[in-house]
């Protein structure tokens, strides 16, 4: 059986400067905070981050931003972290803003082999400016393209040694879909169990999506 369990330092060492990285979590809930902190420690830079938010001041992805290591952020809601605004105004960060449903559907499409899709969200608004539109059934839809990444850092509750994953409550959020859309998927988990110990009916992310499993060190 392929060995998927690695230390966080070995796992994060697979990330290179300039890579695009999907990061799960809604705010800090369900964010892979130990993997992010290890990425901060190792020093990779010039990163494109695809994440709904960019942490909170001093926490999560914001630490990387504050250290000048994120070149571009793609997501839906950066308002809650004032550091993002400061970096944008200073010309140190490029931001691409999408409606949250469009953001997550673009990732779903990326993981599902779909090149793009038409959505009603943002039609007739500033966020649709310059985008191709199409009238379907009398209503305007906006063409959006799929999103993929080099790496996804996700957070799950439990894994088995194959990489099957289950999540916990609203900490699930963007994690399962990001697991489908990156070339290298690293999952930070609370607990690792033997193969066969997870109920196949409740597995949310089947193991074929998961490349590396990292056991959390801290208390959950």
């Amino acid at each position: 059986m392929k060995q998927k369990i690695l230390s966080k330092s070995d796992a994060i060492a697979r990330i290179r400067d300039g890579m695009s990285i999907m990061v799960g979590g809604f705010g800090l809930v369900g964010a892979p905070l130990e993997l992010i902190d290890e990425l901060y420690r190792q020093g990779q830079k010039d990163l494109t981050v695809i994440s709904n938010n960019v942490g909170e001041p001093g926490k999560g992805l914001s630490r990387l931003l504050e250290a000048g290591r994120i070149r571009k952020a793609i997501g839906s809601y950066f308002t809650s972290n004032p550091v993002v605004g400061e970096h944008v105004l200073a010309g140190k960060l490029e931001v691409e803003l999408m409606p949250q449903g469009t953001f997550v559907e673009a990732i779903r499409a990326g993981g599902a082999g779909i090149g793009g899709f038409y959505t009603r969200a943002s039609a007739g608004t500033l966020l649709a400016e310059g985008k191709e539109t199409r009238v379907i059934g009398g209503q305007t839809y906006v063409l959006e393209y799929a999103l993929t990444a080099d790496v996804a850092l996700i957070r799950a509750h439990k894994a088995d040694r194959l990489g099957n994953l289950v999540y916990r409550k609203t900490a699930r959020n963007f994690n399962p879909v990001m697991a489908t859309a990156a070339k290298l998927v690293i999952a930070e988990v609370d607990e690792i169990v033997e193969v066969g110990q997870m109920d196949p009916e409740v597995i949310v992310t089947p193991h074929l999506y998961v490349d590396i499993i990292v056991q959390r060190e801290g208390a959950t």
Binding site: F78, V84, L97, P99, Q100, A121, L126
Partner: peptide, 20 residues
């Protein structure tokens, strides 16, 4: 979702909810 003059940095789910 957006106040003019301020840098536009968040939309969240508002656009999806309004159309859907």
């Amino acid at each position: 979702w957006s106040v003019p003059g301020a840098t536009v940095l968040g939309v969240g789910g508002a656009m999806d909810l309004l159309v859907g």
